[in-house]
Design a protein around this nucleic acid. Sequence first.
DNA 1: TTTTGGTGAAACTAAAATGGTTACATCGAG
DNA 2: CTCGATGTAACCATTTTAGTTTCACCAAAA
Lengths: 141, 141
Amino acid sequence: MKKISSRFSVAVHILSLLALSPSPCTSEFIAESVKTNPVIIRRIIGKLKKAGLVNVRPGAGGAYLTKEKDEITLLDVYRAVEVVEEDELFHHHENPNPKCPVGANIESVFRSKMLQAQMVLERELANVTLGQMVTEISEKN
Amino acid sequence: MKKISSRFSVAVHILSLLALSPSPCTSEFIAESVKTNPVIIRRIIGKLKKAGLVNVRPGAGGAYLTKEKDEITLLDVYRAVEVVEEDELFHHHENPNPKCPVGANIESVFRSKMLQAQMVLERELANVTLGQMVTEISEKN
DNA sequence: TTTTGGTGAAACTAAAATGGTTACATCGAG
DNA sequence: CTCGATGTAACCATTTTAGTTTCACCAAAA
């Protein structure tokens, strides 16, 4: 793979800005903080919107949170930006050879181990709220 | 990202075969069980070799484990096949705007949360040995 | 010693994901 | 009505991945 897409880290960045800003933020403003293109921001905001985390004022513009910052977890964001396909982090390659005793059975065994590993990862993400994030960010000032 | 490369699942498949086979296995034999090309298998075996998990008989051919199957964990394999870059699963995008209070501090906060999440994932992988894998695979027969 | 089977590596291809850019129709507030 | 901002679409370049062909080299067995 390499790495999980930066969409995730950018999305957290966006939401942190929204959580700290008293008024809606435009994609251009956000793009300046993230140091990227406004279109990139809009695309990610689109996914956050679809997930019900933010709303965007039509016409006038500007995004804002639709939930309390303590009710948004990093897992919500992770899922919203669809960084992993079908919510499965690990590739279960194969249509292995069913004639081979290993080929025939490895898939289900491997899969269950990977789902377990994925579960603990997601539980960890679910444990961190946007509220905690912005608190820690603010404390560093 | 999508998914972690199938190199990982294929590597586990390869090692399972080696653990169950009394004699060294050729890449062609393995390729049949995995249902892929022998060259793909050799490339992955090359990485496993570099990590000290297997050895290959020169000339005659055939790979075999260099460690006890209970001393190889899925984390060893995960690391060996280099599915994640620099051992960091999450992308910490950004050279964000240092002038922005969020941009200036989010990176370190986000990073520490992600390292924590990655840690629990890896701990889970470290908890499963190749021995357990082949035991479970065999039980299914 | 010659043959044979296998490895390791290079060179290429094709597909997909990612991050980025430009352009533009559309919508609402002032 | 005008202006600013959004939401898309259409591209593009880069990188990763999986796969294939080819071939030099090596060691064991005939």
